[in-house]
């Protein structure tokens, strides 16, 4: 388990992280989201023992982090995939992974397995300089998984991946979840993490403004569900009176109506009971992205 208490970090007079406190359970998947400069990468570097904290404490499985970082034993359990890593272009993909495998005490057969899992087998003999951005990203992810870590830190792991690569990556994460691996991520891809993370932390201006499960974040946000309805002709009168003030005309024959979760069925019943010539309707449920943007608006960003 990772426990962070009152974590603060300043660079000179600039305060980057302000009194962060949270717990990450063993085997859970957690992602931090936030605008650029919110402190996500700094938080990651502190959790990894790369950057010294200014105040507070970071505890992993009962061991408190002391300068200059984690013990070799704890590092053996960690895997890290940085956001931007320019692997030395003169090494081949296989050579790079073999170099990491030797350091982490893993076998070369695991290297081949990783190359296969990340669809790099055919390019394994090529110098990394010839790899595309997505291939380099896959290579960086593959090195993080060498040594069978039970604690993975992934900084923007799907940043350079194509849709297929992204799906493959989350398939692999699914396997890791079944093995009890703890994953801590930074990501800007909110749709990806909404259904896959157990916890999401929203960092804005160095503060952890929310830390909960995606569904709890949505529920507690106060954001309402909405329905778009499309009629054959424009007739606002077809919308029940008490919803009319919340109805916004979108295009020729469509209206967007905000309603609470409980009002949703009632609204649909009333519309249909009025014999309106309803052409189509769509239920719009608030997403993690809506919650995130509402926090950003609240922070005036």
């Amino acid at each position: 388990m990772i426990e962070v208490r009152d974590l603060c970090k300043s660079f000179g007079s600039s305060s980057v992280l302000r009194e962060l406190s949270f717990k990450i359970e063993r085997g859970s998947f957690t992602s931090f989201i936030g605008p650029n400069g919110a402190g996500k990468s700094t938080l990651f570097r502190i959790l990894l023992g790369l950057v010294e904290k200014s105040r507070g404490s970071v505890i992993i499985d009962g061991s408190e982090m002391k300068h200059p970082g984690w013990s070799i034993e704890l590092k053996k359990r960690m895997g890290f995939s940085p956001e931007n890593l320019y692997i030395h272009g003169h090494l081949t993909g296989r050579e790079f992974l073999q170099f990491v495998a030797r350091i982490k005490g893993d076998s070369f057969s695991k290297v081949d397995e990783m190359l296969d899992r990340f669809q790099l087998t055919l390019a394994a003999h090529r110098k990394v300089a010839t790899y595309s951005k997505g291939m380099k990203q896959r290579l960086v992810l593959a090195q993080a998984l060498l040594g069978a870590p039970d604690l993975l830190f992934l900084d923007e792991p799907t940043g350079g991946l194509d849709p297929r690569g992204t799906l493959d990556f989350y398939d692999i994460l699914g396997e890791l979840k079944s093995k009890g691996v703890t994953v801590v991520m930074n990501s800007h891809f909110l749709e990806e993490i909404e259904t896959r993370m157990d916890r999401v932390g929203i960092l804005i201006g160095g503060k952890l403004v929310a830390f909960s499960s995606p569904s709890q974040l949505i529920q507690s946000s106060g954001l309402k569900e909405s329905i778009t309805v499309q009629f054959k002709s424009i007739e606002k009168g077809q919308i029940p009176e008490r919803f009319q003030s919340r109805a916004k005309q979108l295009e020729d024959h469509s209206f967007l109506i905000s309603c609470s979760r409980d009002e949703k069925l009632e609204l649909m019943k009333e519309i249909s009971s009025r014999g309106s010539e309803l052409q189509d309707f769509q239920l719009i449920v608030p997403s993690l992205s809506d919650v995130y943007h509402s926090y950003l608006r609240g922070a005036d960003l």
């Binding site: 570097r45 790369l50 034993e73 890290f80 890593l85 320019y86 982490k104 040594g147 830190f153």
Partner: peptide, 18 residues
């Protein structure tokens, strides 16, 4: 300088190495 700028040290420092 290359190791520093390219983020290699950042990664190496997380490996189980002195």
């Amino acid at each position: 300088a290359n190791e520093m700028e390219t983020g290699s040290f950042e990664l190496f420092f997380t490996y189980p190495l002195k």
